[in-house]
Write a protein that binds this DNA or RNA. Structure first.
Length: 869
RNA sequence: GCCGGUGUGGCGGAAUUGGUAGACGCAACAGACUUAAAAUCUGUUGGGAUUUUUUCCCGUGCCAGUUCAAGUCUGGCCACCGGUACCA
C-alpha cells in the first residue's frame, strides 16, 4: 500500500477507540417525544462472524441514525444479540463447550471486532442479550402475563417436527415443507401436546392494522395479509344418516366459501384426523380406513404434495344428508382435507372445484353442475350483458371444474340467480332453518412456542404430581437454566437435555407440594418479539420496561426474510402487551425498510447467489477493512444498488469507493492552506464571485439539495447520494486543475474553505471516520480528539436555493417531439419570445424546409416543440 | 395455479411531476507524469451508417394504443426474481 494513500485502518481504528470511550452516541431517555427518534436494526444471531451481507443493514440504519442526529434529534440507536438458539447448542454438542461460553465469545467478537469496526453509532450501554438471565427473566415475566391473560395454552395437536432440530416448529418456520433452518430437511407431522400462543385471537386486528402502516413496504403487508388469510364463508351442518349413530354429534359441520354450490355437493370429505372418523366408519370399512390413516400420517408434507394432483382417499361407509336437498351423501376421508383448517370437513362439489373434480375423477364419483358459465349462456356474443367480464368469460366450457362466475342452475328456488348473489341467499335460508351460519376463517394458526431444546428461555411453569399447572411466582424469576449439563449425552438422546437434570426440574412449591418444571423452552422468536421494548428502558430492574418510557420504533431496518415471522410476532406481542396494560400503543414499527440481499458469484453453484457459507461466496468484513477501510465498504454497499434491490459484491467496485475516499483526502491536502487561520467560514456576496467560484458553490449546493432530498425517509436514495458526492468532488478537481493552491485569491480561499467544510458535514453520515479525521485536521486544527466539537455533533448543512438559481436554462428545440438542438437562453424570455427564438434557429429552420407548421408547443423553462408535417 | 416485483450500454445502475435517455461508478481504451511499472491527473466509451473534428438513422423486454411529446401512462404478450400453495 502506497504511503501517500489514506491510511484507512489506522485512522478508522483511532476514531473507533475514541468514540467508544465517549458517550457521543448515547441516548437521553428524558428527551421529549417530538425530539427523539428511535432507529433500529434487527438484532443479529451471534453466529460468530458477520459478512458484507450483514453489513448492509447496519450501514443503512447507521446513515439514517447519523443523519437524524444532525437534524437535531436525540437518536436512540441501540444494538443487541438474539442469543438463544440451536447453533450454540449444536456447537456445544460438537466440541463440548457450554452454549453460554460459545455465545458470549461470539458476541464479544462481533461487537468489538466487527460491528464497532463498521463505524456504527450504537448506544452500547443499552445492549440487550436475550440469553442472559437479566433479560430472559423478563421474557418469563411477559410469558406469565400472557398466560394469566389466557393467551398461552397447551394442547394436543398435529405439529411440525424437524428431525434435524430435534424439536417442533411453528407454521411460520416451515418453508415449502422444509425446516427454515435446514432447507433440505422435510418436516413431518406428529401429534404432540405443545404450548401455543393465541395469535389467532388477534387475526382480525393484525389484518386491519396493516392499513395503518402507511410507511411499510406494500410487499411485506401483502405477505402478511396472505399469511393471515381471511376468508368469508359459511358453516353448514350435514346430519348423519340413520345407519350410523354417533352420540352427541349428529351432524358433520363443513366450512365453505362457496355456499352457492350447495346443490352440487355429491360427497363429503373428512380429514383423516377428523374426530368423527372412528365413530362413523362402518365395520366393513374399518380395515381400509385404518390403513389409509396410517399411510397418510406417515407421509411428510412434501410426500403428500409431491404426488401432484393425484388424489387419494377412502370411503367410510357412512352417509350424511344435504340439508338443502335431502340427498344422501357418501362420506369419505382424504388427506387433501386438512384437519386444522375450517372444520376439518369439506363438502365436495366436483363440478365447481378443481380438487374435488380430481378426486371425483379418481374415484368415479358423481359430478353435478349447479352453475352455468356465462360463456355457455352468451354463445360467444360480446354484447352479452353489462358485466365487466369480457372475452375471458367467453371461453368454451372446460372439461374440468368450472370455478368462474355464472348463473345458478339445478338448485330449486335459487335457479337463475347470479352465483355471487346466491351465496348470501342460500346462507340466509340455512340460517332460518338452523343448519347454516355465515362464518369468517383465517389461515393463520396459533403460534407453537415450545421447543424440546436446552438453549432457550425456560417456561416459568411447573406441573404438580396430580397434573395441575402452576406458575413460578414472579419474585422467583428468573427460572435459570441449569449450567451443569452433559452435552455429550445430549447428542444421543435428542431433544431437551433438561430432562437429564432432575435436580433442576424437580421442585417443591411454597405449599410443600412436589412439582416438575416444564422442560421445554421457548421459541427464540419470543425473545425477539419484545427486545425493542427493552432498549428504551434497558436497565430497569423492576419490570421488563416502564410503560411511560417505551415508544414505537420510528425506523426499523431489516431483511424481508422476516416479513412474516418476526414482524408478525412482534406486532402480535405489541397488541397483547397493550391488553396486559404494559404498553399504550398498537403497532411497534412506524416505518419499515426492507433492504435487499448482498449477493456474489458462487463457484460452487456457478451463479450469483446470496452470501452464505455453504455457497462459499462469503466476503468477510475485516480483511477488506484492513486494506481499504469500513468507509469504503459502506460507500460501495450504499452506492451499488437502490436499498431494496440486490447488491452484487464486486471487489473492484468497492475499491473504486476507496479511490473516491483518496480523491477527497488528496483534495483537502492539496488545498490545506485555505483552512489556515480561518475563524469564520463564509464568503462574500455570491453574485460578485468569479464564474469558477460560482460554479463550485453551485456544485456543492446542488449536491446538498439532492442529498437532502435523497435522505428523505420516503425516498432513501443512498445510491444517488453517493453519486452526488462524487459529482462534487469531480467538480472540485476540475476547479483544482484550473486553480492550484499557489494561485488562489483571498476570495477563492474563502469559497473553498466554506464549501469544503460543508462537504465534510455532507459526507459524515456515510463515511464517519473520514469525516471526523478531516474535521479535526482541517476545521478544528486539533491533534487531540475534541468530541465536544465532533463532526458527528454538527448540524446538517442547509442548502441555499438562491445559489442554484440561474438566469439561463437549456432550451430544447424539438420537431414533432424529436430533439433537434439545445440552446442556452435567458429565463426572462416570454413564451412568444421563446417561440420566436426557436423558429430563428438554423438547425430547426433547415429541418423545417418543405414542412408545414401545424402547431407550436412552448413549455417555459423546458422546450419548444414544433409540430410540422 | 394465485399474489407481488423487475426488465435501460460490456457490467451495477441514474432519469423525483410524461419534456435533452444513459448521471455516478466498474471494466476497457488513450494521453500526461515516470528510466519503467504501479499510483495519480486528464480524456474517450449505447449501436449503426457516413462525405469521419460532419451529418443522419436506430435505441429503455415484445406488440399495440393515448399524447405535440412515452423508459415514465393504458391494454395485451414474453422473460426473470420473490412470496405462497390441496386453506374448501
Amino acid at each position: 500500500m502506497n504511503v501517500e494513500h489514506y491510511q484507512a485502518k489506522t485512522i478508522e481504528s483511532k476514531w473507533q477507540e475514541i468514540w467508544d470511550k465517549s458517550d457521543i452516541y448515547s441516548f437521553d431517555s428524558e428527551t421529549k417525544s417530538d425530539k427523539r427518534f428511535y432507529s433500529l436494526v434487527m438484532f443479529p444471531y451471534p453466529s460468530g462472524n458477520l459478512h458484507m451481507g450483514h453489513m448492509r443493514v447496519y450501514t443503512i440504519s447507521d446513515v439514517i441514525s447519523r443523519h437524524k442526529r444532525m437534524l437535531g434529534y436525540q437518536v436512540l440507536n441501540p444494538m443487541g444479540f438474539d442469543a438463544f438458539g440451536l447453533p450454540a447448542e449444536n456447537a456445544a454438542i460438537e466440541n463440548n463447550t457450554h452454549p453460554a461460553v460459545w455465545t458470549e465469545t461470539n458476541i464479544a467478537y462481533m461487537r468489538d471486532q466487527q460491528l464497532k469496526r463498521m463505524g456504527t453509532s450504537y448506544d452500547w450501554s443499552r445492549e440487550v442479550v436475550s440469553c442472559r438471565a437479566d433479560y430472559y427473566k423478563w421474557t418469563q415475566f411477559i410469558f406469565l402475563k400472557l398466560y394469566e391473560k389466557g393467551l398461552a395454552y397447551q394442547k394436543e395437536a398435529p405439529v411440525n417436527w424437524c428431525p434435524d432440530c430435534n424439536t417442533v416448529l411453528a407454521n411460520e418456520q416451515v418453508e415449502d415443507g422444509m425446516c427454515w433452518r435446514h432447507g433440505q430437511t422435510p418436516v413431518n407431522k406428529r401429534m404432540m401436546k405443545q404450548w401455543f400462543l393465541r395469535i389467532t385471537d388477534y387475526a382480525e386486528e393484525l389484518l386491519q392494522d396493516l392499513n395503518k402502516l402507511e410507511h411499510w413496504p406494500e410487499s411485506v403487508k401483502t405477505m402478511q395479509r396472505n399469511w393471515i388469510g381471511k376468508s368469508v364463508g359459511a358453516e353448514i351442518d350435514f346430519p348423519l344418516c340413520g345407519a350410523v349413530r354417533v352420540e352427541g354429534s349428529k351432524a358433520i359441520t363443513v366450512y365453505t366459501t362457496r355456499p352457492d354450490t350447495i346443490y352440487g355437493v355429491t360427497y363429503m370429505v373428512l380429514a383423516p384426523e377428523h374426530k368423527l372418523v372412528q365413530e362413523l366408519t362402518t365395520d366393513e370399512n374399518k380395515e381400509a380406513i385404518k390403513a389409509y390413516i396410517k399411510d397418510a400420517s406417515s407421509k411428510t408434507e412434501i410426500e403428500r404434495t409431491a404426488e401432484g394432483q393425484k388424489k387419494t382417499g377412502c370411503f367410510t361407509g357412512a352417509y350424511c344428508t344435504n340439508p338443502y336437498t335431502g340427498e344422501k351423501i357418501p362420506v369419505w376421508i382424504a388427506d387433501y382435507a386438512l384437519v386444522d383448517y375450517g372444520t376439518g370437513a369439506v363438502m365436495a362439489v366436483p363440478a365447481h372445484d378443481e380438487r374435488d373434480w380430481e378426486f371425483a375423477q379418481e374415484f368415479g364419483l358423481e359430478i353435478k353442475e349447479v352453475i352455468q358459465s356465462e360463456a355457455v349462456v352468451g354463445e360467444g356474443s360480446k354484447a352479452q350483458g353489462g358485466e365487466n367480464e369480457d372475452d375471458t368469460a367467453l371461453q368454451p366450457y372446460s372439461p374440468r371444474a368450472m370455478t368462474g362466475p355464472g348463473v345458478i342452475i339445478n338448485s330449486n328456488e335459487f335457479n337463475g340467480l347470479d352465483n355471487e348473489a346466491a351465496k348470501s341467499k342460500i346462507v340466509e335460508h340455512g340460517l332460518k332453518s338452523g343448519f347454516a351460519r355465515s362464518t369468517i376463517k383465517y389461515r393463520l394458526r396459533d403460534w407453537l412456542i415450545s421447543r424440546q431444546r436446552y438453549w432457550g428461555c425456560p417456561i416459568p411453569l411447573a406441573q404438580t404430581e396430580d397434573g395441575e399447572l402452576v406458575q413460578i411466582p414472579y419474585e422467583s424469576l428468573p427460572v435459570e437454566l441449569p449450567t451443569e449439563i452433559d452435552f455429550s449425552a445430549a447428542k444421543a438422546m435428542g431433544g431437551s437435555v433438561l430432562e437429564n437434570s432432575p435436580d433442576w426440574f424437580n421442585i417443591t412449591l411454597a405449599n410443600g407440594r412436589k412439582a416438575k418444571r416444564i422442560t421445554d423452552t421457548l421459541d427464540t422468536f419470543i425473545c425477539s418479539s419484545w427486545y425493542f421494548m427493552r432498549y428504551p428502558d434497558a436497565l430497569n430492574t423492576d419490570k421488563p420496561f416502564d410503560k411511560s418510557k417505551v415508544f414505537p420504533v420510528d425506523q426499523y431496518v431489516g431483511g424481508v426474510e422476516h416479513a412474516i415471522l418476526h414482524l408478525l410476532y412482534a406486532r402480535f406481542f405489541t397488541k397483547a402487551l397493550r391488553d396486559c396494560d404494559m404498553l399504550d400503543f398498537d403497532e411497534p414499527f412506524v416505518r419499515l425498510l426492507s433492504q435487499g440481499m448482498v449477493v456474489k458469484y458462487s463457484e460452487k453453484d456457478g451463479k450469483i447467489t446470496k452470501m452464505s457459507k455453504s455457497k462459499g461466496n462469503v466476503v468477510g468484513t475485516n480483511d477488506f477493512f484492513d486494506e481499504f477501510g469500513a468507509d469504503a465498504a459502506r460507500l460501495f454497499i450504499l452506492f451499488a444498488a437502490p436499498v431494496d434491490a440486490e447488491v452484487e459484491w464486486v471487489e473492484e467496485g468497492a475499491q473504486g469507493q476507496y479511490r473516491f475516499i483518496n480523491r477527497v483526502w488528496r483534495l483537502f491536502k492539496n488545498y490545506a492552506s485555505v483552512f489556515e487561520n480561518r475563524e469564520n467560514y463564509d464568503f462574500a456576496d455570491f453574485a460578485k464571485l468569479t464564474k469558477d467560484n460560482q460554479d463550485l458553490v453551485r456544485a456543492l449546493h446542488s449536491a446538498l439539495k439532492a442529498i437532502t432530498e435523497d435522505l428523505d425517509p420516503n425516498r432513501n436514495g443512498f445510491n444517488t447520494s453517493v453519486a452526488r458526492m462524487t459529482e462534487f468532488v469531480n467538480a472540485a478537481y476540475k476547479y483544482f486543475n484550473a486553480h492550484d493552491q499557489e494561485s488562489l485569491t483571498a476570495e477563492d480561499s474563502a469559497v473553498l474553505a466554506t464549501l469544503f467544510r460543508q462537504f465534510i458535514l455532507l459526507i459524515s453520515p456515510f463515511t464517519p471516520h473520514l469525516a471526523e479525521e478531516l474535521w479535526h485536521k482541517y476545521i478544528l486544527h486539533s491533534d487531540e480528539p475534541d468530541l465536544v466539537n465532533s463532526v458527528h455533533r454538527q448540524s446538517w448543512p442547509v442548502f441555499e436555493p438562491s445559489y442554484l438559481e440561474q438566469n439561463t436554462f437549456n432550451l430544447v428545440l424539438q420537431i414533432k417531439g424529436k430533439k433537434v438542438d439545445v440552446v442556452e437562453v435567458s429565463k426572462e424570455l416570454s413564451k412568444e419570445q421563446l417561440e420566436g427564438f426557436a423558429l430563428a434557429n438554423d438547425k430547426l429552420q433547415k429541418r423545417l424546409q418543405g414542412l408545414e407548421i401545424k402547431k407550436i408547443i412552448v413549455i417555459p423553462n423546458k422546450l419548444v416543440n414544433v409540430v410540422a408535417v
